[in-house]
Computed example of a mutant assay.
Amino acid sequence: MSSVPPSYRGHWYPVEVLSHCAKFGQAYANGLRRRRPRPGGKWHLDEVFIKISGVQKYLWRAVDQDGNVLDILVQNRRDEAAARRFFRRLMKKTRSVPRVIVTDKLRSYGAAHGEVMHSVEHSSHKGLNNRAENSHQPTRQRERAMKGFRSVGAAQRFLSTFSGISPHLRPHRHLMTASQHRAEMTIRLAIWDQITSAASQPTTA
């Protein structure tokens, strides 16, 4: 049975879906990620601060040129060691190396790039990184709605699930006509039904 209510008319947001599938959320997100094409060759990286129990942490995010979220990581700092850790995690998780990375002017990126991705082109310019910055907006909305996160682990788990499901159920509506949007959502909801049905099946010993 689908986790999306039959009354869906294109106005449900992924977090509302997540509230109905908290038990299987990560499995759903993993299933959707496996169906995505390989990431593009241009990666946009950015970091923003978030408050966890009143303490400032940093959320690192990477998206490709199509806006697909490649990975997120909550860390205590945004220094060279943190950037290096994120670079290595990205390449391990995606099993690929980009053609170019785009970041803001944070010096930690340049230092880590020289050590971990020295063969990759690096563009550092505030105005070039809007794609990664825009990708933070849904997270900010959830952070406000949830009145912050209670622990690093809880934030990492929720945001990992959220970033896996949210893009699937939120296509770029502003780039589509109404009929195109309906057709696209029909396809995406059919995929969602397949993912949720498979993930919710009881496992046998």
Rank of each mutant, 00 (worst) to 15 (best):
K93A: 10
V74T: 03
I52F: 02
F49E: 07
H174F: 09
V100N: 03
T161A: 09
P171L: 04
N68A: 05
K93Q: 13
G114Y: 06
M117N: 08
S124M: 14
R77M: 09
V97W: 06
S124F: 01
N134R: 14
S96T: 13
L128S: 01
M146N: 08
D66E: 15
A81D: 07
P167V: 08
L70V: 04
G164T: 07
G54V: 10
K92E: 15
H113L: 14
N134Y: 01
A81S: 12
P138H: 06
K51R: 11
G148E: 14
D64N: 01
G110N: 09
A81H: 06
E133N: 12
D71W: 05
G54T: 07
Q137N: 03
Q156M: 10
V102M: 12
T94L: 12
T161G: 01
H122V: 08
L70D: 01
R170Q: 11
I101M: 07
Y58I: 13
V102K: 02
R61G: 04
I165Q: 00
A111C: 07
R78W: 01
L73M: 13
G153N: 05
I50M: 10
Q137G: 01
V97K: 14
Q137F: 13
E47V: 10
H174R: 15
R84Y: 05
L128R: 06
F158N: 07
G114N: 08
A154W: 04
N129P: 11
L59F: 07
Q137R: 14
V55E: 14
K126E: 13
R89M: 15
F162P: 10
L106I: 03
N68S: 04
H113S: 11
N76D: 13
A83F: 05
A132D: 02
V120K: 07
F86Y: 10
A155Y: 01
A83D: 09
S119R: 14
V48C: 07
H113I: 11
K105E: 08
R85P: 02
E133A: 08
L73F: 00
S96A: 15
H168I: 14
K51W: 03
R157C: 04
K57D: 12
A145L: 13
E143V: 06
R99N: 13
G148A: 11
T94C: 15
I50H: 00
A112Y: 07
P138A: 14
L90S: 04
I52S: 03
V100Y: 04
L169T: 08
L106R: 04
K57V: 11
W60N: 04
R131C: 03
G67P: 08
L159C: 06
K51L: 12
R170V: 13
V102T: 06
D79Q: 05
E115G: 02
H44D: 10
G54K: 10
N76I: 07
A154F: 06
L73W: 02
D66I: 05
A83C: 15
A62Q: 05
N68I: 05
V102G: 03
V152E: 03
L175H: 09
H168D: 08
F49D: 09
M91F: 03
G127I: 05
F158V: 01
E121Y: 07
M176A: 04
A154M: 09
P167Y: 00
S108E: 09
H172C: 10
S124A: 15
